[in-house]
Simulated scan of single mutants.
Amino acid sequence: MNVLVTGAYGRCGTAIIDHLDGRSDYEFTYLNRSDRASDHRYGQFDTHVADITEYEAIRPAFDGQDAVVHLAAYPYIDGDWADVFEPNVVGMYNVLEAARDAGVESFVFGSTNHVQGMYEETLAPELYRPDFPLKIDQNDPVRPDSFYAATKSFGEDLGRYYSESVGTPARFYALRICTVLPYTHDTPYGQAEQRVADGDLTRDSQEYRRLVTRTKAMWHSRRDFAHLVDCCLQDDDVSYGIFNGVSDNDRRWFSIRHARRRLGYQPMDNGEAYDHPGNNH
């Protein structure tokens, strides 16, 4: 299967490289708006260098592809409309239109948990308890917490239009991704430890403990994220589906029942297994 990954050198794209590249059933092409130096961890891969806001620049990368994993975007919840509009609205349209024009059958979209982020805004920190009685699934109302989240909700809707009305791509998978971390910090302690290294937090602070508690709920380990993408790429049944991207954490408030049943998702990791900063996957 030929697979194009956009935004290939971000956290999620590199998780795909680390865990799926080299498998005999995939031939990956990577699209990114910049390349990496030859001595970089990800510098040995051929890259189609282009910005998703420029349709003619990205269009050739879609020829001959069976699937697209679309991860390129402006990814920050504090961005204003000017930040998100071009990459997340125009860019989303460009990538779907290029996939349609090239006859790509399957489209995996990197959406976000922030599409339903207002649940956390209104219920935290009690929400972080493992016994909190809430599991959000794909049928619960969309409640975006930012312009960024609203554009991802738009991307889900646009994907539905292409799969159900246009007909190509024929299969669309929206992954509401939770917390995927860099390979150097791939544990529930990763975000907090990075802030300690940056001098922003101390390990004995209340903020450190709260961040670790939240990440234990939201963590999507890199191998579990890559596995979920693999499940989508191997599927030939779903025409349009929304799936939560999170590991099997005791504290999670996003349900993975739908991903288990429809895709065969079987996450290996649970944030509760970590009680101190540990080894990365």
Rank of each mutant, 00 (worst) to 15 (best):
L31R: 06
N32Q: 11
S34D: 11
S34I: 10
R36P: 07
A37I: 00
H40R: 03
Y42W: 11
H48E: 03
V49T: 12
D51G: 06
I52R: 04
I52G: 02
I52C: 04
I52L: 12
T53V: 15
E56I: 09
E56H: 14
A57L: 01
I58Q: 03
R59K: 15
R59C: 11
P60G: 04
P60H: 03
F62G: 10
V68S: 05
V69K: 01
P75L: 08
D78E: 12
D78W: 09
D80W: 02
W81E: 15
D83Q: 05
F85H: 13
M92N: 13
Y93A: 02
L96K: 04
E97H: 10
A98N: 06
R100W: 03
A102P: 09
G103D: 12
E105Q: 15
S106T: 15
F107K: 09
V108A: 02
F109E: 01
G110V: 04
N113C: 14
H114E: 14
H114V: 01
V115F: 00
G117E: 05
M118I: 07
E121P: 00
E121T: 13
P125A: 00
P125L: 00
E126A: 15
E126G: 11
Y128P: 07
Y128M: 10
Y128R: 13
L134W: 07
K135L: 15
I136R: 00
I136M: 01
I136P: 01
D137R: 13
Q138L: 00
N139W: 11
N139F: 12
D140L: 12
V142L: 14
P144K: 01
S146K: 08
F154T: 08
F154L: 14
F154A: 10
